[in-house]
Design a protein around this nucleic acid. Structure first.
Lengths: 333, 333
DNA sequence: CTGAAAGCGCTAACAC
DNA sequence: GTGTTAGCGCTTTCAG
């Protein structure tokens, strides 16, 4: 099949290439009669505008990229919703890329998107990445770091105040009467984990009469929650915590399952609260209380920040969101 | 910042544009000495190759697209793994797009990717889409339908044999001694649901002595599983099924949770088997037996089919995969 | 309102 | 091994 271009359309419609282009980009400037003829030719020939030519000529693109470590993680997926919504409002398209958390793949996508001349890149990464983003920035492609507060000057970011999230969780446990708290999750070398613990710790300190036990486990998955649950259920009652804050919902879900099936009453004997408010939290055996980050707004803010950068060339904005406490049966008394 | 092009690099390295291009595309044909000078210039200037120019000149792209209804669905996400792996082996990049199952978004991505001149498009969609793919095909962009067997001639697809999956599930329940089976899930207008039921039905028919009750519910989420569980647990024992096949794992997880907390023993009184083998199945209260589609190979096959189409222009290949039975405690006796 | 023509950045064919 | 050059398809002045 011969590739159909604007030239062929023009020929069939009996107008010049310029007029076809006008019709495509400024329809109002073309007479109704020719517009009809042009559209007919487009349909007849199955013309599709060639973006390479267009972009080459224009020198800019209306596409942005969002690189995530794991698309199937509901956390990133829900942010993506916000990103796409806001982008589409701004007349932009979003290319998603899945880095699998692997640095090499991350780099290759970063390179790819630069070559494609995207307007900008949103990046969520478990890897240290700010150096690379700075380099890319210098070459003309702006980026926004998603999910962690950027440290380098000139690097915008949207993030969540995990200290405050940890505080909220522990504070709530204390408010409903818990005094022997436990924090489940690790490793503390992960910033988010450390921050959540720090917040929880502050709430405990404020209270004075409460204690905080740290159960440092990883990875943060359901099956580890099961193990921790079995361990706690196996203790003499006096040694058990009466309120547990798990650093994410997976751990919380596993923990609650094992506690309940071991005959420990949740929340009466042990109250549990998770973090992230994933879909399964709401639907677990005992609906799991959790800390909810504002996913959608998060994505929206990321796009907005990117647009600001594009307009103003330089910027160093950070948006830090406050998470929200979601009370459910696992932490109600 | 003045845009850096191949021209600037050439000037700084003291060679011609052609040599720089050669260095970029056929490094072996450039003398070592100049190669060094060119690379130095590239680094110094922060040169990034402009894909628009390249693609315009070459007339082809090394990018493909994968459009899914919901990236966060582990089913599609795992397929994406396979897609990316195979694509990268073939020297291709993958752009992911999230249609949200909305037809308008689907169309706009379809259009976008055509304009970008991608090599081809992989599409998973809950919507009828073959007509649109045929139109796109005619305009020069091949596609592979992912997740359902294509009906139109000339439209390749990769799909799962859901009839056989349903058969496997019911057959297993019968094999471990169940005789009063129930199928949970709907609506039957969804092809996958209907196929799974059909397979289950065949297994029951083959047996003669078994019965199959249909509990037609939707949506297929955990909370609906809870409801069904409560309903079943509330029946007089004689009226309860002794083996349940849920059309997906979410329903199965919810069902098992409620049965167990209502005092019904799983699998002794009621065995349960789900479908899809999502991560949570393995880690639910009672590990859930399930039917596992071969996600990874699925993605690999999709890319391979696309590559065949690109080479041979026309094709009408279909790959239908057999799912696999994963036995876990919820269906062991 | 329409047409003619220049040129975006790059690659490959060709000449040296 | 290296340089020169002709477009790839499109948009946008600029003239008419």
């Amino acid at each position: 099949m011969a590739r159909i271009g604007i030239r062929e359309v023009a020929a069939l419609a009996g107008v010049s290439m310029g007029t076809v282009s006008h019709y495509l980009n400024h329809p109002s400037r073309v007479s109704a009669e020719k517009a009809v003829r042009i559209q007919a030719a487009i349909d007849k020939l199955g013309f599709v505008r060639n973006n390479a030519g267009r972009q080459l000529r224009l020198g800019r693109s209306t596409t942005m990229a969002y690189i995530v470590p794991d698309v199937s993680n509901p956390f990133f997926a829900t942010i993506a919703e916000g990103v796409e919504q806001r982008a589409s409002e701004a007349g932009l398209s979003v290319f998603l890329a899945n880095s699998g958390g692997r640095r090499a793949r991350e780099d290759s996508y970063l390179e790819l998107f630069q070559e494609h001349g995207v307007l900008g890149i949103l990046v969520a990464s478990p890897e240290p990445i700010e150096d690379r983003l700075a380099a890319i920035q210098k070459k003309g492609t702006p980026s926004v770091l998603v999910g962690q507060l950027a440290a380098s000057p000139g690097q915008p970011s949207v993030s969540i105040d995990d200290v405050s999230g940890g505080y909220l969780a522990a504070r709530h446990l204390i408010d409903i009467g818990c005094r022997r708290l436990a924090f489940v999750g690790g490793p503390l070398s992960v910033r988010q984990v450390a921050d959540r613990l720090q917040g929880a710790s502050r709430a405990v300190r404020e209270t004075g009469s409460a204690t905080l036990e740290i159960i440092d486990v990883e990875p943060r998955v359901i099956s580890v929650g099961h193990k921790v649950g079995a361990e706690i259920a196996g203790r003499p009652e006096a040694n058990r915590p009466d309120g547990v804050f798990t650093v994410n919902d997976m751990l919380g879900i596993g923990l609650v399952q094992t506690l309940v099936t071991s005959g420990v009453r949740v929340p009466d004997e042990i109250a549990v609260i998770g973090y992230d408010d994933i879909e399964y939290a709401e639907n677990s055996l005992v609906p799991l209380a959790s800390i909810r980050p504002p996913h959608q707004e998060f994505g929206i803010a990321a796009v907005d920040l990117l647009l600001v950068m594009v307009e103003e060339k330089e910027s160093d904005l950070h948006r830090v969101f406050a998470p929200e406490l979601v009370i459910r049966r696992s932490a109600e008394r």
